[in-house]
Design a binder for these strands. Sequence first.
DNA 1: GGGCACATGTAAGCTGTTACATGATTAA
DNA 2: TTAATCATGTAACAGCTTACATGTGCCC
Lengths: 179, 179
Amino acid sequence: MARQAQTSTAILGALSIGPLTGYEIRQAITSVLGHFWHESFGQIYPCLAELAADGLVETTPGDRPKSSRYQITAAGRERLRALLAEPPVPQAPRNGVLLRTFFGDAMAPDDLGRMLTSVTAESQARLHSYAAIRSSMTEEPGYAEHGRYWEATLRAGELAAQAQLTWATETTAALVPER
Amino acid sequence: MARQAQTSTAILGALSIGPLTGYEIRQAITSVLGHFWHESFGQIYPCLAELAADGLVETTPGDRPKSSRYQITAAGRERLRALLAEPPVPQAPRNGVLLRTFFGDAMAPDDLGRMLTSVTAESQARLHSYAAIRSSMTEEPGYAEHGRYWEATLRAGELAAQAQLTWATETTAALVPER
DNA sequence: GGGCACATGTAAGCTGTTACATGATTAA
DNA sequence: TTAATCATGTAACAGCTTACATGTGCCC
């Protein structure tokens, strides 16, 4: 998958649901895709300019002066479909928690315990936030058409967080001396 | 956590188990830590040179001409302990599978099905490879001291792969029309 | 009028990958 | 002898983050 293609996919995808400003795209990616995707402004604005130059998005005419929204074009939808068809780019794994666990013998026992405690807390926090999303999701605009797909990604988050919680609990019991 | 710190941690960790050449470090990271960590040569060699300059590793005198192994020093072990105590650097999430799933409505149904099929196959392959590792692990040198920690990381891999398999199966049933 | 959220952009710099260059050793 | 593997390194580049600069509109 080519240069910038990943960012383009996220942006075109966001715009396929409705027109947004660059700022709103960032917000949408952070709040909605946040548990499995990330983009910074430094990526979004240049990419958006490129997409506009290629005729894949266009600015809506009216609106307030500084805040014209970007809208996906027919060519943009076609490109999005093509991008989605490409195999996902695998992310090189860099799991700091497992790296530390693997070399746990070289760690101070307290440090290992602290780390596992925070993993536990983080997993539980994620499970809670997913529960909140699940109960509010049905009222989001676009739920009728897209909801089944949103639910699938949410389910992935729940399963991953649950697995992480199980691991942290088991591992604390196995490796952290009590008191 | 500072520059290169993550790579230093992995390298010092590997050398804390035994002396290795740069090439062997790469091999060890790929084969042993491969399911949760990644380093390329372009990272390893410059980092190793820095570590040697700082007196955290040193080359063993003898051996074959071009293949002197690096050995961790006392200062290196101290640094490793300090690095392991730092909180893990969180990896920005970029899950291409979930990105595609979220925008699944804009995808050709066949493409979604193909993607989920390959996720299923990949999860199963990972489960098989973990089973193989589990049965051979006890004979590895260092298992007696470090084995409990190695098992913990292996367990994390198993739980994650199992969760992924569950997700792919459920999602295929929910979103991919049969035949 | 002061602060905050909205909004857009750029430049510097770090991290990490890829491709290339080089050569030794070993097995077929 | 030729191919594969071992072994070390570098240079170019892609990708991404961070910090900064700049300005608008709204609410208290």
